[in-house]
Each structure stands twice: as C-alpha cells, then as structure tokens.
Design a protein around this nucleic acid. Structure first.
Length: 847
RNA sequence: GCCGGGGUGGCGAAACUGGCAGACGCACAGGACUUAAAAUCCUGAGAGGGUCACCCCCUCGUGCGGGUUCGAUUCCCGCCCCCGGCACCA
C-alpha cells in the first residue's frame, strides 16, 4: 500500500485536486480585494512589468496567452521579492480589421471592438493574470486618443510633425497608405497584399531627427536581444561618406552623388542616375528621342519595384548622351540612367567605380565601360572592394596613400574646393502616419484658405470620431464624407475651414501607452511626469519579435519626443526586452485560417489554468518557439496534482503526528525551529534538497531567467519528497522537515500556479495569503553536502567515482582515488606523469 | 551576399566559470494496486558490445574536419546545414 493511501484513510483534510474550483475561488478573491492595484510608494523598489498590449481580435489563443503568462510569472515573482509591481493591461483598439468587418456586416467598429475586449478580458481573467485592471485603457476611446492629438500638436509646433507630398506605399486592399516599416517584402504587413506606389499629401513624423541617437543608444540596451538591436541598426542604416558634385559638361550645373568610397574617385569612369532622378526629364528633352528615353526610364522604375520583390534583376542602363567631368581626373565620363540606382537613397545619383564596386563592375562589363583600378593591396595585388591595408595608385597626389587616410584627405580637399563635404547618410526615413481610414485617431489639424494649416486648439480636443457612419469601403478617407465633421471654423481668422480627414497610423497609439498606464485617469495631461518618473522606464517588457522595427523603434522615438518636451527623464522606455517565441501547432503558427488554434479556455476547463500556465513556462525557455502538445500540458497537471497530494498528506501528518506540539493542532507550532542535529540522515537529505532547490530556483529565476529549469528543480524536490515518504527513515521531526520543504515549494511555485498555491498556503495555516508571503531563504549550512562524489579520470576518461568527506585534503583524495580497483586497472604497468586535482570537483590521473 | 540565432536521445529540453553529457518532463516498457480498466505509486531506458547469474566493465556518442588542454557540448581555426532579419543603400 502506498503511503498516500495509508494516510488518506486517516486524513483530516482530504481533498482531491479540483483546479477549476480553485480558479473560481481565487480569481474572485483577487478581484474582490483589488489585489493587484498599486500606487506609488517611495519606500519600496518599483518594478514595472509589461506585456505588449493586445489588438482585440476577439479571441486569444495559447500563442497570444504565452506572453501574458510570462509577464505574470515575472510580476508575481517580483511581488514576492518585495517590489512594488505595476502590471497593467490595455487594448490596441483602433485598426483596420474592425473597420473592414463593419464594411462587410454593418456593425460599427466601436461596438465590435468593445465586445471583443470584453471577451478577451474574460479570457485573461480566467488565466489568473495579475493585472491592475483599474488602469485598463483602450486606445479607441476619446480619453486616450485625445492625447495622441495633444502630442501631435506639440510635435507640429516643434517641426517634428509635418506635411508633404511624396511617393508613398499604398495598400490597395486596406485602402490606405503604409509606412516603410509596414511593408514586408513588398507586401502589406497586415493583409499581405502587394503594395503599390502613390503620390499623396501626407503627414510625417520626423523620426530621422533622432536617427543617430537611436542608433548610438542601441549600444546601451544591454538587456535587449541582440537580434532586435541588429534589426534596428540595419533599419537605421547609418553610413559615413561624402557628397560631391560632378559638373555637367557643357552646362552650368552639376550632379551631386553620395559615396562611402571617395578614395576611389579617380576610378570613377561613369556616372549613374536613378530613373526617378530630377535631371531625367531634362536630359530626355535634350535627347534625340524624348519618348523613347522616358519610356526606358519608366520601365526601370516599374522594374525596380518588381526586382526588389523577387531579389535579382539584371543590371541595365542607357547612355543619356551627356557627360560629367570627374573633378579629380578632369576627364569627361558618360552619364547613364541605370535600373539599380535608388531614387530615394542618398542623392539618387552615384559615381560608377567598376574596379572597386561589384555592381558597377557588372554594369561596366556588360556595356564595355572603362575599368580603372585605383586602389591596390600593399603587395600590389588587386584590391577589389577591400580597403584594409590598401593604398591608392593612379590617383595623382594621393597615389601611395593608404585608402583610409585618402578618404579623409580627399574629403577635406573637396570641402576646400567647395565641391563637396563629408556627411552621414541614413537609410531610415520619416514615418508617414496618415491613414485614409475611419477607425483611428483624427489628425487634429484644419486647412484654412487664409491661414493654411492650423492645429485644433488644445481646449477643443479631443477631435472626436463621428459616431454615426456608413461604411462603404470606397477608397478615400471615410471622414471626408461627413460634412458635420469636415466643416469647421478657423480658430485664427474665424472663417470657414476644413478639417483634416485622415486618421493616424495605429502605431502612434502604441508608441506611448506604457506611459499612460502610469497615470491612466489623468484628464489634464497625457500623464503626470512625476508618476511616470516613479514607474518608468518599463523594467521588463515582453512581446513578439515582429515589432522589432515597428512598435519598438517608434516607442524609442516617442520617448525622445517626451524627453525633449521635458516630460520624462529617460530616453529609453524599455530596460529589459524579451521577445517570446511563438507557439506552433502541427508545425505551423496558430491562426484561425489554418484552423490550428488551441483555445486556452478549453484547456482550462480540462486541466485548470495553473496547469496551462506551468506547462507554458516549463516546456522551453520563453524566447524559444515551441510546439504545442496536449500530453505536455497533461504532464503539468499531473505534477500539480502530485504537489497537491504531497501537501495534503503532510498537512494531515503534521496535525495527526505523535509530536505533542504539532498535535495541539496549530500550524504555527509545527513551524518551530528544527533541531538539525537530531534528524535522521534521510531527513537531513530532504532538508539539503529543500535548500538546494531554494538556491537553484532563486538563481534560475533572478540571474539566469530560466523559468523552465526553475520548474524542473521544483519537480526534483517533489520527487524527493515522495521518496522520503516512501522509504525515508523518520524521526518525530519528519513532519516539520516535510513542511519546510512544502512551504518553500508553495511559495516558489506560486508565480507559476497561483490558484493552487494560494489554496495550499491557506491549508497550511497562512490566513493572510500569499501576498504576505516572503520568498524562502536559503540556508547554506543546511544545504552543505555531507559527502562528496568525486569523479576520477585516467587520461581524461572516467574510470571511477569515489565518495569522500567534504574538505578532504588533496593528498588524501589522491590516495583514495588511486586505490580504486578500476583506476588501478588502467594505470597498471604505467608510470603516473601527473595528477590534476580540482578541489571538491575531480581527480584526473595522467599516465 | 551581409547580419543575428541555432544544430545534444524517439520528442521538448538540461549541463551556471573548461570538470561524471542527457537533469526535468513527454512518449514508451515492466512491475505494484484493482474483478478489470483508468488514476496512482515504483522501476527501466543514448547507441553498441563484453560477462550475461549479479555487481560491473569496455568502445562510440553533443552537425562535420582539425587544433589547444590532464580534460571540450563549452575555447580557437576551417566547413556543412537549419531558422529569422536585411538585401542593388553607392
């Protein structure tokens, strides 16, 4: 008969593990006591834990939910460690799906969005996520988006928000403009449609103002994944170089190029213009056959876009009939239009240096243009595109100069001659935020025939979305069709004016919501700088890596804007970033269309929320992708049931034990100090395991952030408890020793399985709940090993393991090791050259 | 092409500072309990071999090939493959 059966028959508190009842009980308790609401408390260290807020699509699947569980485990841990923890949640509630649904089924986006929020909030509550719901926000409510408008106006006043006509990315399916960051492989980030180009008047945020700082400061983000930083660095794309003008032969003007290799300028044997370059139409006019000229340029423009999608298009170009003068050789070089020169980068024109640029070489070879090497390796061999240890040749006065030095010298010379200057070029472009849609923040601007662009005065904010709308899906701004919205009075001249009818990109909403959580009810300002000063920056932020160059770069930008407005002291909003891996099902990302979503509610119904939470944390480190398995979840459920039974048994044995103090029935008495010296060796071993587990779990969670190994350490402790109950020799103190293990286990496991552990904690007599509990304290004395197992190697191969007392001296250890029969067998007939002893670790014999 | 991450049992993974590779879990197998099943508890297990009566012992083994070291999943050099990002950025 198992020990469990034996004790169950005597049990005072017998309860089977029914997690669903515990879920209900403790979720109600947390809600009733407003357990996770917090205020600023200068006496405590603060911890701001945040998961990327959610788009209210209607249903969260376990892939989404993983992120919230990760954040919740961190939050609950930090509370146990004495931090004042802010853990809020909200809704990224504007966006196209709701509006598209409205076009289809006539339900107003606000109605469907609020219904979706209600359902998803219920899902999160059923998981027992410890949010401060009092701070909940939804970006689609005027309380929130008025501050988008307020901030937009501040940015407009500072020139950080501006309007210009430009070629923009257009998604024909979403009927709106997209920012560069929102075009993935030439397709819309949201719906996957092929993006086309359009010329439109658009509002932009001047993120390029901070390009250099965003890049440099990335080096200081020590707790961000390298992957994300690399992506941001690539996206910002800084290159140092020079701009230099080449005169056009037979004309008064010149063409400016950007180059990072001005040291190769003596090898520039042709010049290339992008098909979009401003001079194309002029050269076309001056050519013999203008329509043919323009047709070819136009072909490249179209081709260029296609080329970017498929990767490779053969380099192609044609001669304009005009020449430029290389300002260093003084020689005329042909000006060509080429399909591989980008209009939007640098000056849209480049000097062709075929000897030192692979693309130019390909082009020159195809058209028979001159290839003139001007940089060679020190030994005189061809340098190609390399620069290290290279010197210039055939470069006038610069011949013989190292390439690096020449870059500087020629740049300085160009500056003196007034034909160029050193400069830094970024790939990052300003953020186009106008969207020709309804379900977003109205841009708080007016167009007055007298005063031009006029911001809506602050006291007229928010500019509210008109409620009554018909959604037609026609491809222009829906707000333009609402006269009551459009027609306004100019606050400057009092004359009639028109409202801006575009709305803001929803990424504006998400670029600062983490500040609003620090002061979610403020109706005077987006937030009180003092409150943000207490809570921010966010200490732990987790979400999907897909936002690496979207939300995460925009938020860094906004932090700088708020900083320059004097509202926040920091410039980096997120100290520690974790990008959680996706949950796959049948090898694919979960999605409704694939029909492979796992619904958290049905899992909770079957196994309880704690099993789901524990499984998600145990299956792999949080940043790793995982494959969902039902059997894995079942394993976590089994573990919790195992903990439950062990706790139940020892609660019973503690109460029914022959130990007189314990028999008095109060749990407090069984928590009196353990007389360690009087324990059996099995009891000492269990205590050792208990304290060893405390140490491992604490270290795994704090220093290593490896939740999965923390859980496995606790599983080992439970296995040990079972072994002790099964066959451990017991003294009268056995219940106390077991209780010590179980109470430590309850507290350490509570971030992962809070409902079950609250219940057990209560059963163990702690009336004030886990919120009053403290993280268990590791006792090195108790954890000290009574004997050590030392591996013995001969020539690097394991030959024996010897058991010795800790603190054994090296000569003695060597003697014991060499006495091992199997060691003797392997050194027989050979001379010992060396014995390496790592104290307390190993003996290595070399023969 | 460039950048980042990775490659360990049937599977998810672990090994912290160069020191017993595979902890913990899943799946599997055997046993106990049961009329039976489920549940539960216990036991086993990298591959191959020796002695197979047991204890045990040997060889190989962390993508591949080298190197450093008494000792390498860990460090160095050179490759291969997978995932992710960027990609004609002058």
């Amino acid at each position: 008969m198992s020990p469990w059966r034996r004790t169950l028959s005597l049990a005072v508190i017998v309860a089977e593990y029914h997690p669903q009842e515990l879920d209900r009980k403790w979720q109600a308790h947390w809600a009733d006591t407003r357990a996770f609401e917090v205020t600023e408390d200068p006496s405590k260290p603060k911890f701001y834990c945040l998961e990327m807020f959610a788009y209210p699509s209607g249903h969260a699947h376990v892939g989404h939910v993983r992120n919230y569980i990760i954040g919740d485990v961190v939050s609950r841990l930090k509370r146990l460690q004495g931090f004042n923890v802010l853990h809020p949640f909200g809704w990224d509630a504007f966006g196209l799906p709701a509006e598209n649904a409205a076009i289809k089924n006539g339900i107003h986006p606000e109605t469907s969005t609020l219904a979706n929020i209600a359902h998803m909030k219920g899902q999160l509550q059923r998981l027992g996520i410890s949010y401060a719901w009092g701070r909940e926000l939804a970006t689609c409510l005027p309380d929130y988006y008025r501050w988008n408008q307020w901030l937009f106006t501040r940015m407009f006043e500072r020139g950080l928000a501006y309007r210009r006509r430009s070629t923009v990315n257009w998604c024909p399916s979403c009927n709106t403009v997209l920012a560069n960051e929102q075009v993935i492989d030439g397709a819309c980030w949201r719906c996957g449609s092929q993006v086309t180009q359009k010329d439109l008047e658009q509002w932009f945020f001047k993120i390029t103002h901070y390009a250099d700082d965003l890049l440099v400061a990335a080096d200081g983000l020590a707790k961000w994944p390298e992957k994300v930083l690399t992506m941001q660095r690539n996206w910002i794309g800084r290159s140092e170089g020079a701009r230099i003008r080449f005169p056009i032969q037979g004309a008064n003007d010149s063409i400016e190029v950007f180059t990072t290799r001005i040291d190769t300028i003596f090898g520039a044997t042709f010049m290339l213009l992008a098909p979009e370059h401003g001079l194309v139409s002029r050269f076309a006019k001056e050519s013999e056959d203008e329509p043919a000229f323009l047709a070819k340029a136009q072909k490249y423009r179209a081709q260029d876009r296609a080329g970017r999608l498929t990767g490779e298009v053969e380099k192609e170009g044609f001669f304009t009939g005009r020449f430029a003068i290389n300002p260093y050789t003084g020689l005329p070089i042909p000006i060509c239009i080429a399909n591989y020169v980008l209009g939007e980068y640098g000056t849209g024109a480049v000097m062709g240096v075929p000897a030192h640029d692979d693309r130019d070489r390909e082009f020159a070879t195809k058209y028979g243009l001159e290839i003139k090497p001007v940089v060679v390796a020190r030994d005189g061999s061809p340098a190609g595109a390399a620069t290290d240890d290279c010197v210039l040749v055939e470069s006038g006065d610069y011949s013989g100069m190292p390439a690096d030095a020449a870059r500087q010298a020629i740049t300085e010379d160009a500056e003196e001659r007034g034909i160029g200057h050193g400069t830094v070029q970024f790939r990052l472009k300003d953020w186009g935020i106008s969207r020709q849609r309804y379900w977003g923040t109205p841009i708080p601007m007016m167009h007055c025939p007298v005063d031009g662009i006029v911001p809506v005065p602050d006291d007229q904010l928010p500019v509210q979305l008109p409620k009554v709308m018909e959604f037609t899906g026609r491809g222009d701004s829906p707000l333009a069709g609402v006269p009551e919205f459009v027609n306004v009075t100019c606050p400057k001249c009092g004359g009639p004016a028109k409202r801006e009818t575009d709305t803001m990109d929803t990424f504006v909403d998400s670029s600062w919501y983490f500040y609003r959580f620090a002061d979610a009810q403020n109706d005077q300002l987006p937030f009180d700088p003092k409150k943000v000063g207490y809570w921010c920056p966010v200490d732990f932020y987790s979400g999907g890596v897909e936002h690496a160059i979207l939300h995460l770069i925009y938020s860094r930008f906004f932090a700088r804007v708020f900083h320059d407005l004097g509202m926040v002291e920091h410039t980096e909003p997120f100290t520690h970033l974790l990008t959680q891996g996706m949950v796959l099902k049948d090898g694919a990302v979960m999605s409704k269309s694939k029909g492979n979503v796992v619904d958290p509610d049905s899992m909770i119904q079957k196994y309880g929320s704690d099993a789901l939470r524990l499984y998600v944390m145990f299956v792999a480190p949080p940043e790793k992708e995982v494959e969902w398995t039902d059997s894995g979840l079942e394993g976590s459920f089994r573990f919790l049931a195992r903990v439950w039974r062990a706790a139940d048994q020892w609660a019973t044995e503690g109460a029914a034990s022959s130990d007189t103090k314990a028999a008095a029935g109060t749990h407090a008495t069984t928590r009196t100090a353990i007389d360690h010296g009087a324990l059996t060796s099995a009891e000492r071993a269990l205590r050792r395991k208990t304290h060893d587990t405390i140490k491992r779990v604490t270290n795994d969670i704090d220093a290593r952030q490896q939740m999965n190994t923390a859980v496995s350490a606790m599983m080992e402790l439970v296995n040990e408890l079972y072994a002790f109950a099964e066959k451990g020799e017991r003294s009268a103190q056995a219940p106390r020793v077991a209780r010590e293990a179980i109470e430590a286990l309850i507290v350490m496991l509570s971030p992962f399985a809070p409902h079950t552990m609250e219940e057990l904690w209560q059963i163990y007599g702690h009336a004030d709940g886990l919120r009053a509990a403290r993280w268990p304290v590791f006792d090195a004395e108790v954890a000290k090993a009574e004997e050590l197992e030392i591996p013995v190697q001969v020539n690097g191969k394991l030959r024996a393991v010897v058991t010795v007392a800790p603190g054994v001296e090296n000569p003695e250890l060597e003697r014991i090791a060499l006495a091992e029969p199997n060691v003797q067998a392997h050194i027989a007939g050979k001379t010992i050259k060396k014995v390496v002893i790592v104290k307390g670790k190993l003996v290595s014999v070399v023969v």
